[in-house]
Amino acid sequence: MDRFLPLLSVLAILLQLAVGVTHAASPSELYWRSVLPDTPMPSAIADLIKHSTNVGKELALSHPAVKPMATSSKLRSSFFLENDLHAGAKFTLHFTGTGSRPSLLPRQAADSIPFTNTKLPEILARFSIAPGSREAKAIETTLEECEEQAGYRQIKKCATSLESMLDFTTSALRTRDIHTVSTKVGKEDSPEQQYSVVGVRKVTGSSDWVVCHVQPYAYTVFYCHTKGKSKAYMVSMVGVDGTKVEALAVCHDYKEGSNPKILAYQELKGKQGTGNFCHFQPQDNIVWIPKS
């Protein structure tokens, strides 16, 4: 038996090395830990990192493998009023899941790629996207939205990497003492069904907070912006098939005189004056809130 001990020791060391390689943190994960050491990474981001293509700097400079087109997970539902958000309320919702995972590029790779409409032909050529195609139009629209001037008392940024998103969020909120909230669904792609609310918890206070949405693009781009008077809630719900959901709901103060083009205004204009307009967020939208 003794003669096998050295061999067993070697195997144990090799096993430890293999486990270490398997669980080696990416540059984005390491940056998260350095900036927000006391904030758990939300599953929406952890899943992106897990499923992202391993794109190195050399590959990103030439032709990154970042298809399919990055789009946000979807949530088909109607807008509702804040007063209707209470235990016992029922909503018919369809959480469509995050689908095919796009690549979340590390900052060094993302910063090497042009991100402006003036370089649209170069961007399309880099990712072999045909001009005039649906994908090309989606990229152009995202760049236009990212280059629009921020609204009154609003700060915004399109973050092309996790590192960039962290820098913007901590700068906009003027703190690193932050926690995150996002929608969590028990099933990856649950069917459209009726959900019953079993609990509601407000997650925002009086201070500003930030929300980030995934934009349609050749790789993951988060459109992040500050929110002031809006409110956010975590809503515990159970579907008729037993699916449990912790849904993030955002409520806006759309009073008389609001932009009539806003979908919520169109759907609820007959109920003005009875409360803020709310809607649930899909799984990959993230809200960042100062802890204090």
Rank of each mutant, 00 (worst) to 15 (best):
K291P: 03
V185K: 00
K50A: 11
V21M: 06
A65N: 14
S100L: 08
T71Q: 04
T71F: 03
G20Y: 04
S196V: 13
A18F: 07
F168G: 06
K119D: 11
M69N: 02
V66F: 04
G199E: 03
E140S: 15
G275K: 06
M1H: 11
S292Y: 03
L120Q: 02
L173E: 06
P68H: 00
E145P: 00
V200D: 02
F222Y: 15
I113W: 00
K90V: 12
I289T: 10
A87M: 07
Q266G: 02
D253G: 10
Y254T: 05
T220E: 10
K137Y: 04
V19Q: 10
E267D: 14
G273T: 01
E192D: 04
S196F: 03
M1K: 07
G242T: 02
W32I: 03
A70H: 04
R176Y: 01
V200C: 00
K184E: 13
V66H: 09
L81M: 13
T169E: 08
K119N: 13
I155V: 12
W209Y: 14
S292V: 05
A65E: 15
H23I: 04
C146L: 08
Y223N: 15
W209I: 11
G199D: 05
S34E: 15
A24E: 12
N276D: 15
P216Q: 06
P64A: 07
F95D: 06
A12S: 14
S9W: 00
C224V: 08
M237L: 07
D111S: 11
V214A: 13
E267S: 05
T98E: 13
E82S: 14
D284P: 13
L105S: 05
A24Y: 08
S43G: 08
V221N: 06
P121R: 12
M41L: 15
E82C: 08
S77L: 03
L124W: 02
K137R: 12
R101W: 06
N276E: 10
T92D: 11
V10N: 02
S171H: 06
K291G: 01
I49T: 06
C212E: 06
A46T: 10
L93S: 08
L36P: 10
L36S: 06
G97V: 03
F91Q: 02
W209T: 12
E58D: 15
P290Q: 03
